[in-house]
């Protein structure tokens, strides 16, 4: 009789522990996937000064846009920014980049520059990788949400105070070919 009671007690203790460990693994997966976005963001931010350098001689009317892009980049490169701030800055950078890209059309000389085209290719590539990282992050968040919202792990999650995470919004343009089409 006693061994049976021991087994039952062990199982009762073990189940919440296993559930908790599973939740922690999923939470860590979300954090790890955010790390991959961070790497890609940095890769893109590294390209911005080169882009500004390459176009500033041509794009006279967009000087304000270019200087705000540089300023935003500097802010984004600061260490220890909270996640929400990073996402907000990324969205702003995206917006300005889009506006600059639209205006490329007005400068045929730019399109003739080999250097500029190579740079534009590198940015396209960084954008694609960034889109992939964002989707990976969203998949990890989705997995985590499923775990904290479904019974019985939802009980452990509420006891441990685990809350929902934010999704990245994926722009329409990221669903297809590179954002910066030539």
């Amino acid at each position: 009789m006693t061994p049976l009671i021991i087994i039952i007690v062990l199982v009762i203790i073990l189940i919440p522990v296993l559930l908790y460990n599973n939740l922690i693994r999923k939470k860590n997966a979300v954090e790890n996937s955010f790390f991959s976005i961070d790497v890609m963001l940095k890769k893109r931010y590294d390209l911005i000064p080169q882009l500004v350098e390459a176009v500033k001689g041509y794009m006279i009317h967009e000087r304000d846009l270019l200087s705000s892009l540089t300023a935003l980049r500097q802010k984004a490169m600061e260490n220890n920014l909270p996640t929400n701030e990073k996402v907000r800055l990324d969205n702003q950078v995206n917006n300005i980049l889009q506006q600059i890209v639209v205006n490329f059309e007005n400068y045929p000389q730019l399109k003739a520059s080999e250097n500029f085209l190579r740079l534009q290719g590198a940015i396209n590539e960084a954008e694609e990788q960034l889109a992939a990282s964002r989707r990976f992050y969203n998949a990890a968040v989705n997995d985590y949400h499923n775990a904290i919202e479904t019974f019985p792990s939802s009980l452990v999650a509420s006891l441990a105070g685990m809350s929902k995470k934010e999704y990245f919004t994926i722009r329409e343009s990221e669903k297809g070919v590179p954002a910066l089409n030539i």
């Binding site: 996937s33 991959s36 890609m40 694609e128 990788q129 889109a131 992939a132 990282s133 989707r135 990976f136 998949a139 669903k175 297809g176 070919v177």
Partner: peptide
């Protein structure tokens, strides 16, 4: 590689 898989397999 989870990210690379999504880099190859874009929605389109």
């Amino acid at each position: 590689d989870q990210v690379e898989a999504r880099y190859i397999l874009t929605p389109s």
